[in-house]
Computed example of a mutant assay.
Amino acid sequence: MKLIDQLLQDAQKSFSGWDISFIEDTGRIQYELLPWSYGSEARKYLFEANSLLDMGTGGGEFLSKLLPLPHYTAATEGYLPNVPIAKERLEPLGVEVFQIDIDDELPFAAETFDLVLNKHESYSVSEVKRILRPDGLFLTQQVGGTDCTALNELLGASVNTAYQDWKLQTAAEELAGQLVVLEQQEAFPSMRFYDIGAVVFHLKAIPWQIPSFTIEAYRDCLMELHQFIEKKGFLDVKQHRFLLAAARK
């Protein structure tokens, strides 16, 4: 079996939640460091919170590491396969997990939370404001609209232009209309792939990058990319991240 066939077959390994440790823990993918730490930012605001909501908790991987949690902690998740994973991980910790379908109808009373965390999840500014208590804080790290578009271009896939304007300036202006923006940062760190199997596994885990992706449909382009990585040793693409913290006054 050729190396590329082995790598592509290897990339079919299943995963759950947003756990891509199969390629991260083996060093097959590496990330340039951000100029901030979302975890440290969350910790900074968490100490004074008596109630917490984690929006888009995935499988609860991040939230479960923020112990001890506030007296009332809840989490939402919109991706159905993640919901039972999140419940299994978080409910023993006393966290209520809610499956949601839309961002502007969250199942919480007004002024419920001191802190709302949101990592890489969509949100409605007006709904976030509604559920925050006075002086409550909203912290979000977002994936910008130009994230990893080089992968689309290299594989001959179209780029979703609907989100091209999703960036720090746009999000900060939206938040400033209803909340007081306290912090804002933006970065374009590199993500490095060391083999074509890691690229394919990443595209499986992040299906919205190339919604039409299958190995069969993109095999010729994957072969060319494999040869490029074999020659250079790696493939770098630019991510797009931004961080915002805002308060309800």
Rank of each mutant, 00 (worst) to 15 (best):
T112R: 08
S21M: 06
L154K: 12
Q12M: 13
A74G: 05
D19Q: 15
P70V: 08
S51H: 00
P107N: 14
Q6D: 13
S51T: 05
Y163T: 13
A49W: 06
D25I: 06
A187L: 02
D101M: 09
R248G: 05
Q239K: 12
E105H: 14
V83Q: 03
L80R: 11
K238A: 13
L182H: 09
M55N: 09
K44H: 14
E88Y: 08
G144S: 06
S40W: 08
L154I: 15
Q185R: 10
S212I: 03
V83D: 03
Q169W: 10
L154W: 07
D114M: 05
T76A: 15
P35F: 15
Q12Y: 09
E88V: 07
F22C: 06
A171C: 10
E88Q: 14
V180E: 13
L222C: 05
Y72H: 08
G58M: 01
G59E: 03
E127F: 04
L175A: 04
L137E: 15
D147Q: 00
K249Q: 12
K238Y: 09
I29M: 05
V181A: 15
D104I: 06
G144K: 01
L182P: 02
S64F: 00
K249A: 14
D165F: 12
T161D: 15
A86M: 07
N118G: 04
I131W: 06
I229G: 00
G17V: 02
N50M: 13
E24Q: 08
V116Q: 02
L244W: 06
F228E: 13
T149Y: 12
K204C: 07
L222R: 03
T161I: 13
D147Y: 04
S64K: 04
G144H: 02
H226M: 04
E88G: 08
K232C: 10
L137I: 14
G233M: 08
L53V: 10
S37H: 07
L7V: 04
R192A: 07
G177E: 14
D135S: 14
A110K: 09
T140R: 04
V199L: 08
M223A: 14
F193Q: 01
P211R: 05
I4Q: 02
F47S: 10
V181R: 09
A86V: 07
W18K: 12
I4F: 04
L52V: 01
L63T: 06
K129R: 09
E32L: 00
F62D: 11
M55F: 07
S158K: 13
E230R: 10
Q141G: 03
V125E: 11
L93Y: 07
T73Q: 11
Y123V: 07
H71S: 15
L69P: 00
A176W: 03
L80N: 10
E77D: 06
F201I: 04
G94E: 06
L175H: 04
H120Y: 13
M55W: 04
L117R: 00
Y31A: 07
Q9S: 12
I210V: 10
L46D: 00
S16Q: 14
A171H: 05
K231Y: 12
T149R: 10
S122E: 10
V180P: 02
L7D: 01
T112S: 12
P70N: 06
M1S: 08
E183D: 11
E32D: 09
V181S: 06
I4K: 02
A86G: 01
L117T: 00
